[in-house]
Every structure is written in C-alpha cells, then in structure tokens.
Design a protein around this nucleic acid. Structure first.
Lengths: 202, 202
DNA sequence: AAAATAGTGTCTATAAGACATTATGTC
DNA sequence: GACATAATGTCTTATAGACACTATTTT
C-alpha cells in the first residue's frame, strides 16, 4: 500500500486567500509525493514543501488522513494531508483563490475544505494567522487577514482593542503609506512562536 | 508499506478514566489491526472496535497519524490512530486507569497522550462527554465526569447553572439513590447528536 | 433524629459587541 | 486644502466565577 502526503498551502495576497495548486495530469492537484521507504511522514511533508515551493520553513501541521481505497485510481494510496501557511510574499504561479477553485483531481477538493475549516477554527484561538503576514504589517492588514479568512466584517475599534490587549504585538519603527492619506503604523509580533490564547480572538 | 489503525478507547468507571489495553506480545498495547487491501481506513477502525470490544457503535474519531519509520520493529507500519468513547457500562477486562499506566508497546504511550489532550479539549466545547455516560444520569455524575477528565474541581452551582442553561438536558422520570440521603433526579440528553457549543463548557 | 448528598441565588468582575468622530500625512 | 485612511472611547449586555445554606430521603 502506498502512503503519500498532500499539502494544502495557504497564503493571502491582495485581500484574497489563495491555495497552491500544481498542474496535475488531468485536473489541477495539490502538491504531494509518496512517502519514502525510510522517510518519516512528517519529513516527507517538509520535503514536498521545500521541493515544490522553495520554502524551507513555514507553519506546517498534520490535518487528516484520507484512506478510502477508491480515492485515487491505480495502486491504493493513503494520503496524510498537511496544511501549511506561507507569508504573503510567497512568489510564483499556481496560487488560486480559494473562493473560485476549478474542479480538482481526486479528493483534493474535500482536503481543501477540511484545511479551510481547520484554518478558520485555529485563527480564533491561536496566533497561526501571523504566519500569513510579512514581519511588519499594519493593523488594517491584520484585520483584513481575519476578515478574508473568516469571511465576515469585523469592527475596527473592537478588533484593535482586542488584538492590542493580548500584548502580542509591538509597534515597530516605520509607517506604510498607500495613497493620499495618513500612513499607518507598522506592527510586528513580539514572538515568532505560535500561542494558544485563553479567549477567542475576534 | 503497512497501514494500520490503533484505537484509544476511553470509558469512565467509579470516578476514574480508563483506557482499554490488549495483552500485546511483550508489553500491553492498544487494540489495533492492519488495514485490509480494499478496506477504507475508517472501516478498519470500526472493525477493530467491533471485534475487540464487542461494541458496534461508539463515538469514534480520527486522532492523528503516526508515521515514524522506527515506531515499530519489522516491516514499516504507519498507524492511523483513532479515539473512541464508550459508555461506562462497557464490560470486561483490559481497562486500565489512565493515571497509572504500565510501560506500553511501541509509541502507544504517546498515542494515548495525544488522545487525552484531544478529549480534554473537546470536552470544553462540545458534547462528546455524553458518550461516556449511560442514557440517564445524575448531574453529580455528569460533573464527576468533567472533574475526572479535566483533573480539577468544579463548583457545583456554577456547573449546574451552565449545563442546564444550554438546554441540552431534560429531566427524565426516576431518581437514583445511593445511601442514607436524598436521591438525585435523573437527566438525559435531549439529542444523541454531538453538538459544538458557542461558549466553552466549564 | 442523624447522616449525607441534592438542590438552589446573588453579587462582582470581566469580556464582547454596538456605535461616530477626530487626526494626520499625501497629493 | 481636499482626500482618504488611521486612530481612538464609551456604554450596554452577557458571561464567568466566587461563595453558603436549605431540602429531602434513607437508615
């Protein structure tokens, strides 16, 4: 029996949540590979990340294992799905908006649905979201990230109150201008580590 | 490559959280089996549940896939771990208290740790806990369940206030007496379905 | 009547959410 | 100086948590 890994890679660009797809044979498909004979499954996921995106480090977590014998034709392949978050400066082609995906190979649409549900849930009680932004960002950008992923509007004052009250952010020198108006203060996370919060964010 | 399933089966009896262990060759081990050639992974988990516990139905959910090549000696075996909850009238031998487990085979201690973490987390925001109690139970029994799994004391008045305010419980005819004192009202869940709650329980 | 668990309410502190105006740098 | 986004506070409502006594049935 084959064991493979499939990766759901998310990033946010221009206010849209994107997922990385490869060409596939017939329909577009998630980046993936078979797990090597002596390779830990987790390492196979990191290998796919590195080889197919060029990113060495990213937030990567195991999502779910898909084990229906008919999920792919040919030799039976159980897939351990991972989901990963990349900074928005992630380059290149193959990124497609989650809201308008074409028909995908195999059960990859179901895998993406599961990843999206996980991402939404985690955004609410952890700081995984920081993995999707560049090091310095404005509060408006951070709020936009939450709005895009959660697919709803958030009150600006309440958002800032809450996010600043966590003490996770610090202002960093510099502003970001984007037009004929007041430029915004840049912020960064105090720590790179992902934290679980007592209360829910937003 | 082999693909197997391992099950972490929990129940609560006499105020203790128990997990089911089989004899194993050397050390006790979790119930498990290899996934059949044309068998969905999930179905393999249900088969192990049925064959090794006699229970046809129980709450069963996929936990995590353990894929280190050295996790078991011999032919490489990736294990998809599940966790399951059984009613406290689950009979028979092999049930061991989670708080005092002997050394276990393979990586099964790590699998149980992961299952316990998942159980604690889910208890707080879903009604999975109902799967561990008989159909009718007293509020004291329900509170005891939460206290055992979360390993902390809970205020009786706040617990009752909160659990009743969800509207998930209904009183059922009958009382339960257990000594020289007032007997307790029996309750049951209004629905068998597991629900996700907006707020955290307890 | 003694024993022992069942059952109940209030108050305080904190958090969530609704809501509108002023500030400031760019063009 | 016009424009456009940045930045900021208050009030109301709901929830969490601390806390102690009375009720009831069995023995």
């Amino acid at each position: 029996m084959n064991v493979g890994v499939d990766l759901v890679l998310f990033t946010v660009r221009d206010g849209r949540l994107l997922v990385l797809l490869g060409p596939g044979r017939d329909r577009p498909s998630l980046p993936g590979a078979l797990v090597g004979r002596d390779e830990p499954v987790e390492r196979a996921a990191r290998r796919v990340l590195r080889e197919q995106t060029g990113f060495a480090s990213a937030y990567l977590e195991q999502l779910y294992t898909f084990g229906d014998p008919r999920r792919v034709p040919g030799r039976r392949t159980v897939s351990v799905a991972y989901f990963a978050l990349l900074r928005s400066d992630a380059a290149g082609a193959g990124w497609k908006p989650v809201r308008a995906l074409p028909p995908l190979a195999f059960d990859h649409a179901a895998i993406i649905r599961a990843a999206l549900a996980r991402l939404r849930a985690k955004l609410s009680y952890s700081t995984v979201g920081l993995q999707l932004l560049p090091r310095a960002f404005t509060l408006t950008e951070l709020q936009g990230l939450y709005e895009v992923i959660l697919a709803r509007r958030i009150d600006k004052r309440n958002f800032r109150k809450k996010i600043l009250s966590t003490g996770l952010l610090k202002p960093v020198p510099g502003r970001r201008a984007s037009g004929p108006h007041r430029p915004a203060q840049l912020f960064a996370f105090r720590t790179r580590k992902i934290r679980i919060l007592d209360g829910l964010i937003v």
